[in-house]
Each structure stands twice: as C-alpha cells, then as structure tokens.
C-alpha cells in the first residue's frame, strides 16, 4: 500500500533521514521504534508532505508522492495524528473534529463521520461543546485521534499517542488503536512504549541515527534478547 524507497531528508546540513526503505501492506499495523532524534517524526512528516525529501521515493498504491503538498496527501487518505496532539485549543471538541473533515470529500460525509467517531469515543460526545484546551491529556489525545478519523483515513499514522498520559489513559489509547486496526485500518504507530507497541503490532521497524537499524515481525523482536538489550532498552 505504502512503499518507501531510499528516502533521505536533510534540515540544512544536518541529515535527518538516510536511505530509509520500508513497506506497509493494507490492513497492517506497523510499529516504528527508536530513541529520541532517531528520525521517526521526520519520517512521518515527510510522508505527510510537511517536509520534502532530498532523495528517494514514497509511493502510495503505486503513485509517487513526490512534490505533493500536505493538502493533497491528506485528501489521498494518508492522515497523521501529530506528536503532542497539536489540537486547536480555543476551539470546541466538535470544532476540532470538524476541522479533520476540512477537505471537500471528507466534508460531504462529516455528519456520518461524527457519529462514527462518537460511537468509538462516547465520552467525547458529552464534551463536544467544551474547549479542547480544557480537557485532560487523555481526552485531548482522543480528540486528536477523532480528528484524524474525521478525515476518513486509509492509512493512519500516530506519533507518540501515549506520551505523557496516565497508564490508564495510555491503555485506552492502545485499545482504541488496535480496535480500529481490527476493523481494517492500516496503521503506523510511533511509540516509546516498546512492549505495549510490539504486542499490538504485526511488524516493527527500529530506527537509529536517521536510518533503519533493523526490522522484523514484532513477535520475533520481542523474543530476541540481543535486540531487546541493544535497541529497545529492555
């Protein structure tokens, strides 16, 4: 569904991604692991079109994404839930959700999408008229995921969705994400919670210094003591 081939990205003289290649099949749930500054967020931002690559190719269902802006990429169904949630804090919960359905195709079905999101996250319905900035961290993360769902994603990319959340809220986020995947949502998840992430994903890529250090089935990575020690800090 998504193929990345030899992707290299630089901010000025600093290389942020070097020669990254990966493939994601439809219905997959893929983990992207690695320490701070390994290039995980840069990779997602490059896929989203916020950052343009220097070299390499990203193909979506065979079509090259080269040179396309974030609005086109969003309309193709590649949707990111950014790190730190990045909500619109002074807007209500419902306005935040509706902003997810900003582009015409998603806007047409926004009423149905809203019902769909509220059915997955019922307590957001109760808070629909509240300012997003006034919610707890866990609720804000739900709004961020809900906003992404409003865009009718075909590939959902979550950047650190459990960062800074209480264990309970974090478990709730993981439950919702794996539930969505079971319903057929292709997902990439970036997370520092290695064990939890490996247990809900089928395949994992581990990044280091802007490159892919290793990759393999999540179950195998979880079992290998050598990998656990040197890459995953377990």
């Amino acid at each position: 569904m998504l193929e990345i081939d030899g992707l290299t990205v630089a901010y000025g003289k600093m290389t942020a991604l070097r020669d990254v290649s990966m493939a994601i099949r439809a219905d997959d749930m893929v983990a992207l692991l690695g320490g701070n500054g390994a290039g995980k967020s840069t990779l997602l931002n490059t896929i989203s079109g916020l950052v343009q690559p220097e070299k390499g190719e990203i193909r979506w269902q065979g079509q090259s994404l080269r040179g396309l802006g974030p609005d086109i990429i969003c309309s193709l169904g590649i949707i990111q839930v950014p790190e730190g949630r990045k909500l619109f804090p002074a807007m209500t919960v419902e306005e935040n959700l509706l902003m997810g359905a900003y582009l015409p195709a998603a806007r047409k079905v926004r009423r149905q999408s809203l019902d769909w999101v509220y059915s997955h996250m019922p307590h957001l319905a109760q808070r629909r008229r509240q300012r997003a900035g006034s919610l707890s961290g866990g609720e804000q993360q739900m709004v961020a995921i809900g906003r992404a769902l409003m865009a009718r994603p075909r590939l959902l990319m979550l950047d650190e969705p459990s960062l800074g959340l209480s264990p309970r809220a974090s478990a709730e986020v993981f439950a919702i994400v794996s539930n969505l995947n079971r319903e057929g949502m292709t997902t990439i998840i970036v997370s520092q919670e290695v064990q939890e992430t490996l247990s809900i994903t089928s395949y994992a890529y581990v990044m280091e210094n802007g490159g892919i250090a290793l990759h393999g089935p999540s179950a195998a990575l979880r079992e290998d003591p050598e990998i656990k020690k040197s890459y995953l800090g377990l």
Partner: peptide, 14 residues
Amino acid sequence: RAAWQNQEAARLYG
C-alpha cells in the same frame, strides 16, 4: 481560526 491556533495541524488536515 485553526491556522492561527496551530499552523502545522491545520496544514496536516488540508
């Protein structure tokens, strides 16, 4: 309003 409150998120949603 969205662009004013968070430019990057606004861009991500088109």
